[in-house]
């Protein structure tokens, strides 16, 4: 434990805000935004573990002595692009759900499902 743990605490706060939005909100698009926030905080957490004090970007040059670790950066670099691709899948699903139900609110969808079942039986 030291004075620098504020980084982790703030990132956890960000993560929990994202998680809260995902759990509590019924709007599918708002859920996706919450998921993006969660994702961003995970990215920052990874990168913060690779950072070295007074280090510089891991591009080797003769003038520099200390470098931050390149591995977390590689993992997050690919994860960002994968993240936006999966976000697009989620949004495409939301668009199709809107076309089928006329809403992106979970509550209204459930009501419409129950109505349909009630009419069928």
């Amino acid at each position: 434990m030291s004075g620098t743990h504020y980084v982790y605490w703030l990132l956890f706060a960000l993560m929990m805000i994202g998680l809260y939005v995902v759990i509590s909100h019924g709007n599918l698009l708002k859920k996706m935004i919450g998921l993006t926030l969660f994702q961003v905080s995970v990215f920052l957490f990874f990168i913060s573990l690779g950072k070295v004090e007074d280090g510089s970007a891991p591009i080797i040059s003769p003038e520099v002595e200390t470098y931050s670790h390149p591995l977390p950066q590689v993992l997050i670099l690919t994860a960002i692009v994968v993240g936006v691709a999966t976000l697009a899948v989620g949004l495409a699903l939301a668009v199709r759900i809107f076309e089928a139900y006329g809403t992106v609110e979970e509550q209204d969808m459930q009501e419409r499902d129950e109505d349909r079942h009630g009419a069928a039986s």
Partner: peptide, 28 residues
């Protein structure tokens, strides 16, 4: 935090592409 490559990607993806996608879906 010295992750210049990542910053590059995040700026192009987060501000450019995912915002355009979100706004497009909101319009739909």
């Amino acid at each position: 935090m010295d992750a210049v490559d990542v910053a590059f990607t995040e700026a192009a993806v987060g501000v450019g592409i995912s915002t355009v996608l979100l706004l497009g879906v909101l319009a739909l």
